[in-house]
Design a protein around this nucleic acid. Structure first.
Lengths: 152, 152
DNA sequence: TATTGTTATACTCTATAACTATA
DNA sequence: TATAGTTATAGAGTATAACAATA
């Protein structure tokens, strides 16, 4: 009985240690990221949801996981740079519609390409079986996070 | 031949998509984190390496993945709060030794506990075989990142 | 000269509280 | 009253450039 408990505990510890090592390595790698990127990671997270079409400010803030004032400020900067537009909503005069411009869309695309190149560099370090296992595990963990969100 | 290339491409895409989904989910989870934590995530990343003993400022900055001025500033704040000490190095009068205080160590411990609880919540969503696979994959990816660093 | 650390400066990201305009 | 968005304010985190002290 107690040996089972210990075993579960050490398996959890192995999982947590691996998770932490991965998170640390990923963070270090993120720091080293292109200084000439058009969008910061936060900006990319913000405009990403706009790829599917325009959103209201509040919807956008929620999709990007930031507060409304933060989204307002970020949209200010991005629209000054011509990457997004902020137009009045036809049906509700309180509301705005935020949309990607053509160059905003191009910036998102360029960012996605760089990100893919980084994923590829990692991918190329792995053997064929590791590649398959990694894809499966990462997808499963993302799913597990989603289940968790419901309870938070 | 071309089917092999296509297959490799789509496997990379599956890997990248899974990686991105995981990164997004992890980011959303990180946002939702305890507002009453003693240390912010960045502060924890900074003081974590001190658990193994005192470090010079530059060593610390490197271990935490930030610039030296950033580390200086963060150490300022943490030492005002009594979580770390900054003492002159005995052998090199240019250098300082930065160390955790007892309450700094306690803060790291408390933070590590909360983090373990979050890892556990995720772990508990997985089946036994998924748990083992996840630990192995995450450890392998961390290792792959390290190999990458050499070439960066 | 090279290295260690700090200061000066500037920008992004972030939030909460208070406000305006509209519903 | 409630909702959409903005402004005001504040603070953390981040970097590069310039500097001081020491090696």
């Amino acid at each position: 009985m107690s040996s089972v408990a210990v075993e579960i505990g050490s398996e959890l510890e192995a999982f947590a240690a691996a998770f932490d090592a991965f998170a640390r390595a990923a963070k270090r790698a993120r720091v080293r990221v292109d200084p000439d990127a058009i969008l910061t990671p936060s900006q990319h997270d913000l405009v990403g949801p706009l790829a599917d079409g325009p959103l209201g400010l509040r919807e956008l803030a929620r999709a990007a996981g930031v507060s409304a004032p933060t989204a307002t400020r970020m949209v200010d900067g991005l629209s000054e740079r011509g990457l997004v537009t902020r137009e009045p909503d036809a049906g509700d005069r309180r509301a705005v519609r935020i949309a990607l411009t053509a160059s905003g869309r191009a910036a998102v695309g360029a960012h996605a390409e760089r990100r893919l190149a980084r994923r590829r560099a990692l991918y190329e370090q792995l053997s064929a079986s590791e590649r398959r296992a990694a894809a499966a595990v990462l997808a499963r963990l993302a799913e597990a996070y989603e289940s968790l969100e419901g309870s938070a």
